[in-house]
Design a protein around this nucleic acid. Structure first.
Lengths: 391, 391
DNA sequence: ACATTTACTTTCATCGCGGAAGTCTTGCTT
DNA sequence: AAGCAAGACTTCCGCGATGAAAGTAAATGT
């Protein structure tokens, strides 16, 4: 079986729907796909078998592990699964100082990762650094189907960076085209939070939910939204919309002068500053959390107030967007664990008691997690073939 | 032309898409529809002409009013429009005291309205009252295609009322089936705010927007959301989600003890109470607004604070949901006009300056407006034919 | 008058779909 | 062990929707 051969047909219409169903809902039998897509069994044979022949899908052994409804008679089904190794993708997350990159399969499983500092913040340095990282990751590796790049800022048409404060780019940069030309590969560029949201949507714990939000806490507060199984994209994404949402009228000021806003209450710098001032010495974020966990008289109230603010923010997200679930992540996510009771209490206080309980999922994040988001954007572009960037 | 004859085919697939396009985007030429639905001109002839023959669509004279791109040569187009009189609908809004009903066309134009007090709050009284109103409205009128009913509370499957505080129904009431049996007509029941949102979506100023919110202020604060051209429906709709959203840490208390929440700041009773207490006499809502407009030292600060709170709420809706537009309506909507500058200032303060300006549309509402929402629900059910209730 | 342009209609080959019947494989019954 | 029922999948075939291309209609400009 030649796993690396791409399907000759560019995966149109119903065939793409079948492939997507398999990619997103794990191994599925043909009959189950037919049921879900409301198609006849005959059509499913016609659509699925070419995909198997092309190497994109593979037949796996019937899943005996799932006991329970195993008391069935009749011929065994041959579930289909994605041949994740059929395609590989690069995801690269660009920050103000460096680039983190991962190599993933079609199912966004990370099979390699690397990091490189940026020699400069100009577009040429970014392009060169990404190219070097890809060189490292694909040294003896497989062919890359598409490259995804994510960064904090605004991106138009998945190609052009129209705002990137961390990189101090003052004018539009056609990063997608620049990279595509340099690499000879199709490239998709996206806002980092949208990319993370896409990854959670297709490959994360929110898989299968058609309405959920992603909230990140770290250097700032980030926010992504999926409604009706579609990521909400708007030119306003990428400008820290929730960053200055007021959460605590008694809270500290943020650099913009908002009292008790999300940034002032939840960002790592703000929390470190508040605790450092009280202790008359400089402390790290993790120290703050550790001190609070042990009942430090300075850190504990800061962290509890932050937890309450987080709960209020989570409740507001749920109240305003009617989502069933929120994925909480980012470098500062440990706050949700240390201040768990405060968070939960605040959510309860701000939610109507007759609403469905809010499902909260805390995801620990590292650099590979963010880079994987960029890879997910590339995977989506590849599968949906909307040609979001220059090939 | 027999306008009342229903199409024999139940409007499936592509034919329905064409009819919807004409219903929602006003008069459109065949070629324009073909472009929008990405279909060939030939298919359009095949699909549209049976609809014209059936009386659902009519050819109208080319719209010479739209100058500007009138310098065109070639054969004149014959735009298609919905024959709004081809079907009629009843919309009924049930409150704790009475029922308001309207008779509308297929385009939700109100052609008759009536009101009747409820003799009691039991289901039988509601059913009987609606039936009487329909009798009045259709005395010499046309056949009704479907009845829409809306009320404050929760409704499951567009049929069963699972919570209705104003009617004091403690257990589930299959209002849809009860009415359908009594009337011999298909019935759709829905939450009043969802119904209003649907009306704005298809027939209101938000037509064509694929993302917007509806906010109502009156006895309480109501909220509806459309994302990706679909009304967001959730079991939690109907439980005044935004009613207790905190807006002003210095504000008064609401009956539930929340300081400065949306209800405390914006509801008509709260505003009347605040002004009445200050003036040592009982004043109506409109009096409050009039006094504030003339600089009354008691009413003006209350109304200004309310305006600021409203602005903050509007900004939060836009920040959390990324909507481009908000329709503001309800019996208390005059607040937005009297306190306009306070509203605008507060919106500006809570929105990132780099976001797109928030489009705000203030809609005056009366009882017919709410009942029209119920009719819109019936129209949608009729056109989409999802059989949401027992026929 | 005649070309030109646009709007719509007609015709026709194609293709994807669903339904019916067939094959394959399993478990259960007798 | 043979027969049977049941489910998963395949094969086959007719229908119907579709788009391409050619044809007709109605307007403008020269």
């Amino acid at each position: 079986m030649d796993a690396t051969s791409a399907p000759s047909t560019p995966l149109a219409g119903a065939g793409r729907a079948v492939a997507l169903e398999v990619l997103l809902r794990g191994p599925v039998t043909r009959s189950e796909i037919a049921r879900r897509l409301s198609m006849s069994a005959g059509s499913l044979t016609r659509l699925a078998n070419p995909l198997v022949d092309s190497g994109l899908l593979v037949e796996v052994d019937a899943d005996h592990g799932q006991a329970g409804h195993e008391a069935r008679t009749g011929r065994r089904s041959r579930p289909l699964d994605i041949n994740a190794a059929a395609h590989h993708f690069i995801g690269a997350k660009v920050t103000g100082d460096d680039v983190h990159a991962v190599l993933t399969t079609l199912r966004a499983e990370v099979v390699g990762s690397a990091r490189k500092p940026l020699p400069g913040r100009d577009p040429a340095s970014v392009v060169a650094t990404i190219a070097e990282l890809i060189g490292e990751l694909t040294a003896e590796g497989p062919r890359i189907s598409r490259v995804g790049v994510s960064l904090g800022g605004r991106v138009a048409h998945h190609t052009t960076v129209t705002a990137a404060p961390f990189l101090e780019w003052s004018e539009d940069v056609p990063l997608g085209s620049l990279l595509a030309d340099a690499l000879g590969l199709p490239v998709t560029v996206d806002n980092d939070l949208l990319a993370l949201t896409r990854a959670e949507h297709w490959f994360g714990t929110a898989r299968g939910h058609d309405r959920f939000a992603v909230l990140t806490i770290g250097a700032g507060v980030g926010y992504g939204l999926v409604m009706h199984d579609t990521v909400v994209d708007s030119p306003d994404v990428g400008v820290g919309l929730l960053g200055h949402c007021p959460l605590d009228p008694m809270g500290p000021l943020c650099p913009n002068g908002h009292r008790g806003c999300a940034t002032a209450m939840l960002s790592r710098p703000s929390i470190c500053a508040a605790v450092s001032v009280g202790l008359r010495r400089s402390v790290t974020y993790d120290e703050c959390l550790d001190l609070a966990a042990h009942g430090d008289p300075v850190a504990a109230p800061v962290i509890t107030a932050a937890g309450r603010a987080l709960g209020r923010l989570l409740a507001a997200v749920a109240n305003f967007t009617l989502v069933q679930k929120i994925v909480l992540t980012g470098e500062g996510v440990r706050l949700a664990e240390v201040a768990r009771t405060a968070v939960e209490e605040a959510v309860r206080a701000d939610r109507d008691p007759s609403t469905a309980p809010l499902e909260l999922d805390v995801q620990h994040s590292d650099f590979a997690y963010w880079a994987r988001g960029a890879a997910a954007t590339a995977i989506q572009a590849h599968v949906l073939e909307e040609t979001p960037a220059v090939g």
